[in-house]
Amino acid sequence: MSSYDDLASQALAEIEQADGIDALDALRPGLFGKKAALTEAKKSLGQLDPEQRKEAGQALNAARQQVEVAFETRRGALAASARTEALEAERMDLTEYLGSASPGHAHIVTQTRDRLEDIFIGMGYSVAEGPEVESAWYNFEALNIPEWHPARGSFDTIFVNLGEPEEVMLRSHTSPVQIRTMENQEPPIYIVCPGRVYRTDTADATHLPAFNQIEGLVVDKDITLGDLAGTINQFVKALLGDDIETRLRPSYFPFTEPSAEFDIRGLDGSWLELGGCGMVHPYTLRACGIDPEVWQGFAFGFGIDRLAVMRYQTDDLREFVNNDIRFLKQF
């Protein structure tokens, strides 16, 4: 009996002394192989008488199991420490980083425009677009701005050398898209028209001759000035936050009646004019073949660039068209 214990103790001592996985594995034949002491001992069990054999067998098994467990435990410990060592050896400074991957950037006007489009899509609007070079009919006349009208001068229009003098121009607002939509689509109409517009404004920190507007148009039955006020209120809150207030103030545009400016009030309590709006003028509806006795509508418009300036706190509009990667990559 004690000879088994001795064998086990000896084996355990060997296992304990193995200082690496390889050294441990090298012990395996000597511990469990055909010629190993414990294996030999098992063979010699047959020479014992049956009574002794049972007892000796149990003792031998216990010794062997003890050695096996010790072996696996030791092996696990050695493997773990080897792994730790290996991981330690490949330690990395993650800031030691040579990569130059630089993602591209959407222009801030696009980002702002997409955001506005998405808000209005959520409110049931479609996005309409139209040409940037327009005729006087779409840019002015259908909008109730006849040739002599003082308002024409206030648009500071950039004309192009096509047709008669002042017959073709870079659109000075996105309103021509309203006309084109109403000419081609039966009401109900719920659209926003974002896009570039042009004026003879010398480029400076707050002006560009080419800038971006977005305009909304609704033509449906029973549309009221209250609907306009509510719509503006809803999209402003969606865009700038629930605590922003809005108001309408009477104003004048030839193509809307009544006309209004819309203001927003920020957290500092001051009112800021954001854009113009009004009920679509019956003249304009008729010019597009829509009966103003049946349909009513509203329109509103404002600058996209200005919202981008507010959101990103830029200080010079010229950067928007300057193509400087140092500007573009900030957004």
Binding site: F120, I121, G122, M123, G124, Y125, S126, P188, Y190, V218, D220, I223, T224, L225, G226, D227, A229, G230, T231, N233, Q234, R247, L248, R249, P250, E257, P258, S259, A260, M279, H281, P282
Partner: peptide, 28 residues
């Protein structure tokens, strides 16, 4: 319509209740 604007102006645009029309079609 011009005269309606005058009524609205003197009544006060800010007094007009704000409502939001609900289009039947989806935006897209």
């Amino acid at each position: 319509t011009d005269i309606a604007e005058e009524v609205g102006r003197m009544y006060g645009f800010e007094s007009i209740p704000k409502t939001v029309p609900k289009p039947e079609q989806n935006g897209a």
